[in-house]
Amino acid sequence: MPSTPPDRIRFPLLCLRGLAYLLLIGALMQGVLLEASRPGGAGFSEAGFTELTQSLLLLIATALALAARLLGRDLRHVSLLLVGLLGASLIREQDAWLDAHVFDGAWQTLVTLLVLPVLYVVIRGRRAFAAELERFAMSFSGGLFAAGFLATYAFSRLYGRGEMWQALLGEAYLRTVKDAAEEITELFGYTLLVIAMLELLLMVRRWRRAAGR
């Protein structure tokens, strides 16, 4: 029988991973429900389940992207850019803590120190980056990343606009509802990014095995 091409995922594994991702999403939403059910309406604070889980998901996604970068050279520029983007998002999520315990504007400084070298390397190798990006965009990981990126950095921001929720709820408007809608949508976006980075790492491993490295 012909071997499976390195870009393909076998059907049984696809089903198994799909089930695992469904269970992950279900577990996260159960955690959100428990946080929302806390007495006194104290849910969705900086130290609550949703905020802490967002940081944890970004940390995992960044680590997975870094592992993919170290494991293979096929997408070295794309994976480096992903490390920069996810790492910058992780730092941004800690803005309140950094401003309070390091110095005001610390997160902007750290993001700049991370992003500028990454952009320099990517721009310097822009031809290789363009070819890698075309390949990444055609993959399962690339599709998941695009969905997670749009959900997190576009849809959640627009969905969480105060004026929209004021128009929807009128006199019954509560800021907690608006904040919950935005934070939960952002949590789902980060979950997609984690899954995308896991699929990227698995894809890079398949390519490495196919190449006999």
Rank of each mutant, 00 (worst) to 15 (best):
P2T: 10
P2E: 15
S3Q: 09
P6F: 05
P6W: 03
P6Y: 03
D7F: 13
L16N: 02
L16F: 11
R17N: 06
R17A: 03
G18R: 01
G18L: 03
L19N: 01
Y21E: 10
L23Y: 05
L24S: 01
A27Q: 10
A27M: 12
Q30N: 13
V32L: 09
V32T: 09
E35F: 13
A36K: 09
A36M: 09
A42L: 08
G43L: 03
G43S: 06
A47M: 04
T50L: 07
E51K: 07
T53Y: 04
L58R: 10
L59N: 05
L59Q: 10
A61R: 00
T62L: 14
T62Q: 13
A68Q: 10
R69F: 14
L71K: 11
R73L: 11
R73A: 14
D74N: 07
R76I: 02
H77I: 00
L80T: 02
L80D: 02
L81I: 04
L81F: 13
L81E: 10
V83R: 01
G84R: 01
G84V: 04
G87V: 00
A88W: 03
I91F: 06
I91L: 15
E93W: 03
A96D: 12
W97T: 11
L98I: 04
D99W: 06
G105S: 03
W107T: 08
V111W: 01
L116R: 00
V122K: 01
G125T: 01
R126H: 12
R126Y: 11
R127D: 12
A128Q: 10
R135E: 13
F136P: 00
A137L: 07
S141V: 04
S141F: 02
G143A: 13
G143M: 13
G143Y: 10
F145S: 12
F145N: 10
A146H: 10
A147C: 15
F149C: 12
A151K: 04
Y153C: 11
Y153A: 14
G162A: 14
E163N: 10
M164I: 13
A167N: 08
L168A: 14
L169H: 09
L169N: 09
E171Q: 13
A172E: 15
R175H: 15
A180M: 11
A181R: 02
A181S: 11
E182F: 06
E183L: 11
T185D: 04
T185E: 06
E186G: 10
L187M: 06
F188V: 15
L192T: 03
L193K: 02
V194A: 05
A196F: 05
M197N: 09
L198P: 01
L198H: 12
V204G: 05
W207Q: 15
R208L: 05
R209I: 06
A210L: 07
